[in-house]
Design a binder for these strands. Structure first.
Length: 256
DNA sequence: ATGCCCGGAGCGTCCGGA
């Protein structure tokens, strides 16, 4: 089974490109982030015509997450991360897909550092860690998938020294990510490719794509039951080079 | 220190992104 994650950066502006990639990559399940569309502007008909069911949680203007599935039914578990009933950002969607629990995640960016946005990011991370623990306790196959807005190590940044005070790479954020892994999650792409430079994002600014000035921000965290079934994984890097591309590229893993 | 590029909202020019 092929599972992918893609920060689409505007699902309506990017719809032809998304459909092209779905046709080419044929993922069984897809987690999307940054729909940038309210619920009533989700392009369900086009997605269905491409052969997918969908569950989504949108928001006007920004954020928004979705889970697509070709064959396996999607059963919603929750559409908000517990722990702050005043948090109205659409950044979390959790569902049973087949026999797995999949959490689609769009973790806050947190820039600029320092500031209230950075504090919100750390708080969101703490809420995620608390909830992730309860997911592990269920002893079913679980994966946390999406745009974590964290480069976990220096290997995940084209030029680490430029990012030490950036909210994507601040030591507090990397520590939060490592603490999460320490609960018993496997970073699938890093596990498969321990020494490889893997990027999933190239900024629109300063010709980042042409310079290969990339960041690894999009991750698959697998519990032990799924880690043992991991076969392959990668990034559909060429999609970042398509006209009108998102600044992220799709990433994927294969589970047996 | 700033702009560099984008989508969205909505119609001039911000905001948010990373």
């Amino acid at each position: 089974m092929k599972i992918a994650t893609y920060n689409i950066n505007g699902i309506n502006g990017r719809l032809p490109l998304l459909l092209q990639w779905l046709k080419e990559a044929k993922p069984d399940v897809v987690c999307l982030q940054e729909l940038k569309a309210p619920d009533n502007r989700f392009p369900l008909t086009a997605i269905q015509e491409a052969g997918y069911q969908a569950l989504w949680h949108g928001q006007k203007g920004w954020n928004g997450v979705a889970i697509l599935s070709r064959k396996l039914p999607i059963q919603e578990l929750r559409r908000a991360l517990p722990g702050d009933k005043h948090d109205d950002h659409s950044r979390y969607l959790e569902a049973i897909v087949g026999k797995m629990v999949i959490a689609c995640i769009y973790l806050p960016n947190g820039n600029p550092y320092p500031g209230v946005k950075f504090d919100y990011k750390l708080k969101w991370f703490r809420r995620l860690a608390t909830h992730a623990r309860t997911l592990l306790a269920h002893e079913v196959p679980v994966m946390l998938v999406g745009d974590f807005n964290v480069m976990p190590t220096e290997l995940d940044v084209y030029k680490p020294e430029k990012y030490f005070d950036n909210a994507l790479f601040r030591k507090e954020v990397r520590a939060a990510y490592q603490r999460l892994l320490g609960q018993g999650w496997t970073d699938a792409l890093r596990h498969l490719h321990p020494d490889k430079r893997i990027y999933t994002f190239w900024d629109y600014l300063r010709h980042a794509w042409e310079r290969d000035a990339g960041l690894r921000l999009d991750h698959f965290l697998l519990n032990d039951q799924l880690a043992g079934r991991l076969q392959r994984g990668g990034v559909d890097k060429h999609v970042r080079g398509w006209p009108k591309a998102s600044d992220h590229a799709p990433a994927w893993i294969m589970i047996k």
